[in-house]
Simulated scan of single mutants.
Amino acid sequence: MLLSEQEQHDIKSSESITSNKYEDGYIVSVRYISSNRSYYFYTSDDSLRVNDKVVVETVRGLELAVVIGEPKDIREFVLDLELKPVVRRATQEDEENYEINLEKAQEAYKICEECVKQLDLKMRLIKAEYTLDASKVIIIYVADERVDFRELLKELAAKLRCRIELRQIGSRDRSKIVGGIGACGLPLCCSTFLGDFDGISINMAKNQYLALNIQKLSGHCGKLICCLKYEDDEYTRLRQGLPKIGQKLHYDDKIYKIASINVLTGAVRLESPENIINLHLDEVKELIESYKEG
């Protein structure tokens, strides 16, 4: 059985390392409690069920996660990657430690914020989070320029007394972490279901006949909204064979220019210095064909 393209992508993103082949065991899909991202992990426990909480080993350390897909026999898949393992089922103590770590993370955030202010560093803190065993705290921040945080690390190490990782992220990742409500009235896609960010270009807006108003086309991150990508392929298909915007044609003994096309409804807006009319796309195509034949 071959993995789907999405499953292969998820597995490649599951913090895998060297090549290996498994003779037995299972693949299980989990989502970190602290985020909406899902990954595949290796487990020998086939009794795991959806919504079971587990402790997994990641490149950051131990993390608490929830099972979102039942285990699948690993021998059914073509797999050349070594997956990080599910360490164990989560215990009551693990869940309690997770809650304690949330409170500790808030304190770490405040301490780091004070240190940043004292050292006058040009960086904006976004979030602090501990690994499950509290052996490391990850401080996430954004900055326009490179920041020399050597002094900051010394200050934090003395006050927090654990390993410290300072992680700089971009504006899109910031929106993913912070969240918010989009122009559509729903929670941001990046903070709910998007795993990775696709490349978005202004040509996608042009392809969908959208007004090139950058302010309206930009999301909370200041970049072009991700949803421009969702229907781009369909618009590309629907635009095949359409007349060009600005093309001139004769109608009722007058010359009109195609001003806009609604590819979903088939409505075409024609403009002349004296008049504006709306025709269906089929009518416009007939006019163009008759003009060619004539």
Rank of each mutant, 00 (worst) to 15 (best):
N51R: 14
E63M: 11
R49D: 14
Y40P: 00
K21C: 10
L81E: 11
R89I: 00
S29F: 04
K72H: 06
E82L: 04
E7F: 03
Y32A: 05
Y42K: 06
K53N: 12
S29R: 13
L83I: 12
R88K: 14
I17Y: 15
R31Q: 10
V66G: 08
I27M: 13
Y32G: 15
V54K: 05
S38W: 06
D10N: 07
Y22I: 03
L83A: 02
G25C: 06
Y40Q: 02
V30W: 08
R88L: 00
L81N: 11
Y39L: 07
I17V: 15
I74K: 04
K72G: 05
I11D: 01
R60D: 05
V87F: 04
G25A: 03
T43L: 01
T43A: 04
L48M: 01
D46W: 00
D24T: 15
V67N: 08
Y39T: 02
L79M: 04
D24L: 05
G25W: 06
D46F: 05
E70A: 10
H9E: 04
F77A: 00
I27H: 09
D10F: 09
S35L: 07
E70N: 13
R31N: 10
Y26T: 13
Y39C: 02
R75T: 15
Y22R: 01
N36F: 10
A90T: 07
I74V: 14
E70M: 06
I74S: 05
D52Q: 08
E23C: 08
S35D: 14
Y40F: 09
L48G: 05
D80I: 02
K53C: 11
D24H: 15
L81A: 10
K72F: 01
Y42L: 10
D10H: 06
V54M: 07
V56R: 02
E76I: 00
E82I: 00
P71F: 10
I74H: 02
I17L: 10
S44V: 04
E70Y: 03
D73V: 12
V87H: 09
F41T: 03
T18A: 12
A65I: 09
V78W: 07
G61Y: 05
F77K: 06
V87C: 01
F41R: 07
I33L: 13
L83M: 10
L81K: 13
I68H: 12
R75L: 11
R88F: 08
L79S: 00
S34Q: 10
E63W: 04
D10T: 03
E7C: 06
I11K: 06
K53R: 14
N36D: 03
D46L: 03
K53S: 10
E76R: 12
H9P: 00
S38H: 09
N20T: 15
A90D: 01
S47R: 07
S14K: 02
Y26K: 12
R88W: 06
